[in-house]
Simulated assay, not measured.
Amino acid sequence: MLTLAIYVGAALAEIAGCFAFWAWYRLDAPFWWIGLGLASLAVFAFLLTLIDSNAAGRAYAAYGGIYIATSLSWLWVIEGIRPDRWDLIGAGFCLLGAGIIIAGPRAPI
């Protein structure tokens, strides 16, 4: 459960950081939003280091599925656009893949 919380927190931090740049560049948000974006992206990177994995690539691969699902939640909650069935089906496959990567049995290294 802690792993999932870290992944979701990292995804929210990454999305918020990228959205800050999006808002500055495409929505005319104030320049100081870039600073918020940079801080948020630093939090994202730090949170991923907390994942209990012996390989960074595996931790990042599993994160991808969580990121996709969290991005669709952002789309709905923050941007006010409800994901359609294709978004949800795609996210479901991604979460299934992330779950397999996270929970799959591993040979000792």
Score class of each variant (00 low, 15 high):
92 G>S: 14
88 L>K: 05
74 W>K: 01
106 R>K: 14
103 A>I: 06
48 L>F: 03
44 F>R: 08
45 A>K: 00
38 L>S: 06
99 G>Q: 10
84 D>I: 08
73 S>A: 15
108 P>T: 11
77 V>T: 12
80 G>R: 08
103 A>C: 12
10 A>I: 00
98 A>W: 00
55 A>G: 03
34 I>K: 05
105 P>T: 10
97 G>Q: 10
30 P>M: 07
43 V>L: 14
32 W>H: 15
46 F>N: 04
54 N>D: 14
18 C>L: 13
43 V>R: 04
27 L>K: 15
81 I>F: 05
66 I>F: 14
42 A>L: 14
78 I>Q: 09
56 A>C: 09
75 L>I: 08
26 R>A: 13
108 P>C: 00
103 A>M: 05
68 I>W: 02
79 E>M: 10
100 I>S: 03
99 G>C: 11
33 W>I: 04
38 L>Y: 00
19 F>P: 00
78 I>M: 11
85 R>V: 14
28 D>Q: 12
82 R>I: 13
79 E>Y: 02
89 I>M: 12
60 Y>M: 11
42 A>M: 13
66 I>E: 06
15 I>H: 06
19 F>H: 14
89 I>G: 04
28 D>H: 07
13 A>I: 07
14 E>C: 10
37 G>A: 12
41 L>V: 12
95 L>F: 01
65 G>Q: 02
18 C>Q: 06
42 A>G: 08
105 P>K: 11
82 R>N: 05
28 D>G: 08
81 I>S: 06
44 F>Y: 15
72 L>F: 11
76 W>K: 05
30 P>F: 09
88 L>F: 04
71 S>W: 04
61 A>F: 02
42 A>E: 09
40 S>E: 06
11 A>P: 09
86 W>E: 07
78 I>S: 01
78 I>P: 00
38 L>T: 12
44 F>I: 02
104 G>S: 13
24 W>Q: 13
53 S>T: 14
27 L>F: 05
50 L>I: 03
98 A>C: 07
95 L>C: 01
94 C>G: 07
70 T>A: 15
10 A>K: 03
76 W>V: 04
10 A>N: 07
76 W>L: 06
99 G>L: 09
94 C>L: 12
34 I>W: 00
94 C>P: 02
38 L>N: 00
63 Y>P: 05
105 P>L: 09
9 G>M: 03
55 A>Y: 15
31 F>Q: 13
65 G>V: 08
76 W>C: 04
60 Y>H: 00
13 A>K: 00
77 V>H: 01
64 G>D: 02
29 A>L: 03
29 A>N: 05
58 R>C: 08
11 A>D: 05
77 V>K: 01
27 L>T: 05
104 G>N: 01
62 A>E: 08
85 R>N: 09
62 A>C: 06
92 G>T: 13
18 C>V: 15
81 I>D: 04
92 G>M: 01
93 F>V: 02
97 G>W: 03
101 I>K: 07
80 G>Y: 02
27 L>A: 10
85 R>Q: 10
52 D>T: 12
67 Y>M: 07
103 A>V: 07
28 D>E: 11
61 A>M: 11
